[in-house]
Simulated scan of single mutants.
Amino acid sequence: MTDIMFMLANDHRNMTKILDALRRQISLMDHEGSPNHHHIRSILVYILDYPTQVHHPVEDLVYGELKIRDPAIARNLDGIEQDHAELEKQTRQFAQAIDRALQGEELPLQWLVHMGQNMIDRQRCHMAAEETTLFPAARSSLTPTDWANIALVLGAPDDPLFGPRTREFFRCLHQDIMISEAV
């Protein structure tokens, strides 16, 4: 249990850093500054990569085991999997809008800013809900066998931004996040 829950909690801490970096870039966009479009694109690629492809499926596995172990508690968490799908859709829509803007399409600035801020707020709300509902329920209800089953399916995922081997694509973004944390 501790390894998987540690990974999920750590992912949330890292996602907070990513969302903070995105909010800084959106703030520059909103105040007539010049955001770092490479960072915005890198952030969105990361969110569509690791959280969507690794983190949310792990939470879905935890939720699946919880439904088997304690259906009454799991009923209170209905919607977690649907929320993951909706977050991915919202992030894709924002990424597509940013891509269109980067290709020179004239899009209303306030619309882009609102879209980005809304995505960030929804991601934060989602993480807070998981930390107060799913995580405590999993810690209290799942057995060592349940955690072992999840670990078997999970394997050993590597975070491409915060893991031991930062992917080259994310190197500048990683440096920016580390510098902003030091300030």
Results as ranks from 00 to 15, higher is better:
residue 43 I to T: 01
residue 64 G to S: 12
residue 39 H to F: 10
residue 49 D to I: 03
residue 40 I to N: 02
residue 67 K to M: 15
residue 63 Y to K: 05
residue 80 I to R: 06
residue 48 L to M: 10
residue 41 R to Q: 08
residue 82 Q to V: 12
residue 54 V to M: 05
residue 42 S to T: 06
residue 83 D to W: 07
residue 45 V to L: 06
residue 53 Q to H: 15
residue 75 R to W: 09
residue 83 D to K: 07
residue 77 L to A: 01
residue 46 Y to Q: 01
residue 55 H to V: 13
residue 75 R to E: 15
residue 69 R to Y: 07
residue 50 Y to W: 06
residue 58 V to H: 08
residue 42 S to C: 04
residue 40 I to D: 02
residue 47 I to R: 00
residue 40 I to Y: 02
residue 52 T to Y: 10
residue 50 Y to T: 01
residue 62 V to E: 00
residue 56 H to M: 15
residue 80 I to D: 04
residue 50 Y to R: 00
residue 76 N to A: 11
residue 49 D to S: 09
residue 55 H to L: 15
residue 56 H to G: 10
residue 74 A to P: 01
residue 62 V to R: 00
residue 48 L to R: 08
residue 60 D to S: 15
residue 77 L to R: 02
residue 68 I to C: 09
residue 75 R to Y: 11
residue 63 Y to I: 13
residue 43 I to D: 00
residue 74 A to Y: 00
residue 39 H to V: 03
residue 41 R to C: 06
residue 54 V to R: 02
residue 49 D to R: 04
residue 60 D to K: 15
residue 53 Q to F: 13
residue 45 V to C: 05
residue 73 I to T: 14
residue 60 D to V: 15
residue 83 D to T: 13
residue 63 Y to G: 08
residue 59 E to I: 11
residue 56 H to W: 14
residue 41 R to H: 09
residue 41 R to E: 08
residue 62 V to G: 01
residue 55 H to A: 10
residue 39 H to Q: 04
residue 68 I to Y: 09
residue 48 L to P: 06
residue 71 P to I: 04
residue 53 Q to A: 13
residue 66 L to P: 02
residue 39 H to E: 04
residue 65 E to N: 11
residue 44 L to K: 00
residue 52 T to N: 11
residue 75 R to S: 12
residue 66 L to A: 06
residue 75 R to T: 14
residue 46 Y to T: 03
residue 44 L to R: 00
residue 80 I to E: 06
residue 45 V to A: 04
residue 53 Q to E: 15
residue 65 E to H: 15
residue 51 P to R: 00
residue 57 P to F: 07
residue 73 I to D: 09
residue 69 R to W: 06
residue 64 G to E: 12
residue 53 Q to D: 11
residue 64 G to I: 08
residue 81 E to P: 06
residue 70 D to I: 05
residue 55 H to G: 08
residue 55 H to Q: 14
residue 53 Q to T: 15
residue 69 R to H: 06
residue 83 D to Y: 08
residue 43 I to K: 00
residue 79 G to N: 10
